[in-house]
Amino acid sequence: MTYKTLIDHFESLCEKEGKSIFIVKYMIMELSRLETHVFYTALNDTLEEAFVEQVKHAMHQYIYEHIPVDYILGYRYFYGHKFHVNHDVLIPRNETEKLVERVMICLDYMQKPVSVLDLGTGSGCIGLTLKKEVEGITVTLADISFEALDVAKSNGESLEVDVHYIQSDWFSNIDQVFDVIVCNPPYIPDDELIGDTVDKEPNLALFGGKTGLEHYETVIAQSKTFLQSNGLMAFEHGYNQKEALHQIILTHYENASIVTLKDFEDKDRMTFFSPNNKKLMKEGLR
C-alpha cells in the first residue's frame, strides 16, 4: 500500500461517515513525520505494514470514536509552535491566536518590564506564546487543574521559556498585582449542545454555567485586587456574549475603556478593557 492509496481509502470512508476528508491527508502526513515537500514526493512509495496499521488505528479513533485529531496526534500547532495536548486540556483554537496577537501589540505600547498572568492557562498556549515572542515580560500561568499545569509545564520546557506556574481556582492562590491579565474561561452555556468531538474535551474547560458567563462574573469581580489601574485585561468569549460581558465589566469598572474585536469569521470574539488607560486602548487596539 502507498500513501496515495491510503489517503484515497480513508477520504472515501470519511465522506461516507460524514467526517471531514481534509483531516486524512494531514493526519497521515503528521504520522509519517515527513516534511511537507518530502511527503508529496513520496505519495507512491510502498509503506511498511506497521505504519499502515498505525494509520488505520488513528483513523478508526477519528471516524468511529470521534476523538479529536489533536488528541490522537498528541499535539497542536499554535502560533507556529508545537503544543502538547491531551484530554486534560482544551485544544488551542485558531481564533485564540488572534487574541494573543492583539495582546502582543498592546504590550508594545507598555513600558517594560510588564507582568502578565495567563489565568486558566490549560495547555499554556497563551502565556507561553507571549513569553516566547515578547521580550521584557514576566509570565505566570495559573490553572485550577494540576493535570493541566503538568501539560503547560511540559510545553514550557519544550519551548525553553522561563515562566511561573501556580495552581489556583481563579485568583484564590494569586498574591501579586499584574499589568496584564489574559483569560479564556469556559463560556458555553450548560444546556448548549456540542459536537461529538468537542465533547471529548474536559467539561471544566468548556461550560460556563447557565448563561455561559458565570466565570466572567467571578474573574472580573475578583480582578480588582490583582489588576493594575493602568493595566489591561483580555478575554475570549462567545460570539453572542459581547453586550452582557460589557455590562459585567462596567458593573465593576464603571470608567473602563472597552474594545471588542472580531475573529476570523467576523464574529465578536475577544474583549479588552483597561480600568484607567484610555491611551493604551486607543493605540494598541485601534
Rank of each mutant, 00 (worst) to 15 (best):
M1T: 00
L6V: 05
H9R: 07
L13A: 02
E15C: 02
E17S: 14
F22W: 07
I23W: 03
V24T: 07
K25F: 04
K25G: 03
Y26K: 04
M27T: 02
E30M: 15
L31H: 05
R33S: 12
V38Y: 04
F39N: 00
A42L: 02
L43Q: 02
N44H: 10
N44Q: 03
T46I: 05
E53Q: 06
M59V: 03
M59Y: 00
Y62P: 00
E65L: 11
I67D: 00
I67V: 11
P68W: 09
L73V: 04
G74N: 14
R76K: 15
F78M: 07
H87I: 08
V89A: 10
L90V: 10
L90Y: 09
E95Y: 15
V103R: 06
L107E: 03
D108K: 05
P113T: 02
L117C: 15
L117G: 15
E133Y: 01
E133R: 12
E133C: 13
V134M: 08
V134Q: 13
E135G: 13
L141I: 00
D143I: 06
E147Q: 14
E147K: 08
A148V: 04
A152Y: 11
V163D: 09
D169W: 02
W170P: 03
I174A: 14
I174K: 10
D179L: 11
C183A: 06
N184A: 14
P186Q: 11
I188R: 01
P189Q: 12
P189H: 10
D191L: 13
D196Q: 08
V198K: 11
V198Y: 08
D199E: 13
K200D: 09
F207A: 02
G208L: 10
K210A: 12
G212R: 00
L213T: 02
H215I: 15
K224R: 10
S229F: 08
S229L: 09
M233Q: 01
F235L: 07
F235P: 04
E236N: 09
E236C: 07
K242R: 11
E243K: 09
E243A: 15
E243F: 11
I248Q: 01
I249K: 00
T251L: 11
H252Y: 09
N255R: 05
S257T: 14
S257Q: 14
S257L: 08
K262M: 05
K267D: 06
M270V: 00
S274E: 06
P275N: 08
K278S: 10
K278N: 15
K278T: 04
K282F: 13
G284M: 04
L285Y: 03
L285M: 03
